[in-house]
């Protein structure tokens, strides 16, 4: 069953049977189970990651449904994390899927991520991304940033000590979030797919792409090659 399930994927030369075997040994923590997090978690489960934790203390709202695929109207008011656990487990029972209905804070983030091979960013604010970045650098756990706005998404894989960290690129960005963020319904699926691929590359030890910017309306894809900032207050003192 397992071989059949992943057969078409293992035929992909960039991935292969070896990639499939490696992926099955890996553990991801998805922080945030909304537009990006739910799509990326779904892809990782379907593709055969070994284990996945999905952390979110929010419940499904009708305003989530235009940009998510896993949730339905009957899920409104229920825990996003627990609904994702239930539905994604049903998709692939080989994968250990655990929904954690908890708010991520500076007190609990280390325990949530320290055993993970990668953190997947499904959050919706800058402050939490700075917290993830801090925990990533402290615990040497890589993460994959992704964000969306209107028709534009950004993705960047971050390996502490090796690649630029989030603080390297966001040092001028205030931690406060703007109000309600406009998002085209088709955007998170596209950006989560790119985020998933960067996550896979990170887990398989393949080179990451850099800062990716994709506009789904203009169909404009850009990659920005960036380097670590030696003056970065978060990772500047780390050796590569």
């Amino acid at each position: 069953m397992t071989i059949d399930r992943y057969r078409r994927q293992t035929l992909v030369k960039e991935f292969g049977l070896k990639g499939q075997e490696i992926l099955a040994t890996k553990q991801a923590v998805v922080i945030g189970g909304g537009g990006l997090g739910s799509h990326c978690a779904s892809l990782l489960v379907r593709m055969g990651i070994g284990s996945i934790d999905i952390v979110d203390n929010d419940s499904v709202d009708i305003t989530n449904l235009h940009r998510t695929a896993v949730f339905s109207e009957s899920d409104i008011g229920k825990s996003k994390a627990l609904i994702l656990q239930e539905k994604l487990h049903a998709v692939n029972t080989i994968v250990r899927v655990k929904g954690i209905n908890q708010k991520v804070t500076s007190e609990n983030i280390d325990s949530l991520i320290k055993k993970a091979d990668v953190i997947v960013d499904g959050t919706d604010n800058i402050a939490l991304r700075h917290l993830i970045n801090q925990a990533s650098v402290k615990n040497h756990v890589p993460w994959v940033y992704a964000g969306v706005y209107e028709t534009v998404g950004m993705v960047m894989g971050i390996i502490p000590g090796k690649t630029p960290c989030f603080q390297c690129i966001a040092q001028t960005i205030p931690a406060s979030s703007p109000g309600e963020i406009p998002v085209l319904g088709s955007l998170p699926a596209a950006i989560a797919s790119i985020q998933c691929n960067e996550t896979l590359k990170l887990l398989l030890g393949k080179p990451l792409t850099g800062l990716i910017i994709y506009d789904v309306w203009k169909q404009c894809f850009e990659i920005i090659d960036i380097q670590k900032n030696p003056q970065c207050p978060m990772c500047g003192g780390k050796k590569t």
Partner: peptide
């Protein structure tokens, strides 16, 4: 020169500068 820097950083002839819209934060 491929490093993201603060806005008060001096520039010199020959520097390679890029301008990019702010990091997007929605999820």
């Amino acid at each position: 020169n491929k490093i993201y820097i603060s806005h008060d950083t001096p520039v010199q002839n020959g520097d390679e500068v890029t301008l990019c819209p702010p990091v997007v934060s929605g999820g």
